[in-house]
Write a protein that binds this DNA or RNA. Structure first.
Lengths: 152, 152
DNA sequence: ATTGGTGCAAATCCTTTGCAATAGC
DNA sequence: GCTATTGCAAAGGATTTGCACCAAT
């Protein structure tokens, strides 16, 4: 038995990180927050707010969607997760912090990670020419994923 | 008088283009479509669906939002305009076709154009390694625009 | 004991849908 | 005249808000 039925305690690197960040801002460490962050870090898929709620419904049975939204907003502000705006008004959350970009299949809608940072020097320079202070660069590739190419 | 109160007729390059595209697909050339495309081509800002309706409310007084949405969807499919998903679930439409990217101010939300194509060779290659067929690359810069930097 | 966080219910916002009337072709 | 397109009204789905209760510090 490795660690069985994921409970909130026990060696969880994301938990210490979270506790520290929240405490330093006078905010509270709640089970909801612990579980949501752990889920985002564990899951390699990209989750919407309701996906998150479903994914943790065992660990935190009665959690409400407003709480999930509030928590995700907080995590984005803390820099713990990335918010992703893919097509169709869909908003997803990504627990991976390492620099990487995203590719969205126009057939099935699935979003996959693409490792690597964009070579954005030229675009940055161009934006800064007009006085825009660039803080972040998001790249979204669109196309057709392997599975849909095989199916189609 | 250059050409005064923009009416739908008279030398409008976008109109001929639109007529041709629609006819070739057995679709109809309506005043709503003509005016919406002309507005998107003329306006250098990026417009949401309701912005479009307001912008053309003089030319097409009774136009409904569902019609605006349907028309924008059609134009995106025809490749006449680009759909932009910027933060906050906001969807904007861009009548400029030439390759360019976008920068969104995190303070005021304004979206400005950034000329130039991304140097995306490395990311494309990485995505294709996993069987993903890249068709399009969208880059969204985030940061603070000139005006908000001065104000702040 | 304080007061930030949660859950609930309802409100809001954007977008889509169903359908009868209208207008391109 | 045929049928795509429109406008209206209403539905739908995602996210936010207000407030009373609860629980982390």
């Amino acid at each position: 038995m490795t660690e069985a039925h994921g409970h909130t305690t026990r060696r969880d690197p994301s938990r210490a990180e979270l506790t520290h960040l929240l405490r330093s801002r006078g905010q509270r460490v709640t089970p909801q927050r612990i579980v949501i962050l752990r889920e985002l870090r564990r899951e390699r898929r990209h989750l919407g707010a309701d996906d998150v709620r479903q994914a943790i419904s065992d660990a935190v049975p009665g959690i409400s969607l407003p709480t999930v939204y509030a928590t995700l907003d907080l995590f984005v502000e803390l820099g713990l997760v990335r918010r992703l705006h893919v097509g169709g008004g869909v908003t997803l959350y990504d627990g991976r912090i390492e620099p990487h970009q995203h590719a969205r299949c126009r057939i099935c809608g699935e979003v996959q990670d693409v490792d690597g940072a964009p070579d954005d020097a030229a675009l940055r320079a161009e934006a800064q020419r007009s006085g825009f202070a660039v803080e972040q660069v998001d790249v979204l590739l669109s196309g057709v994923c392997q599975r849909c190419r095989n199916a189609g």
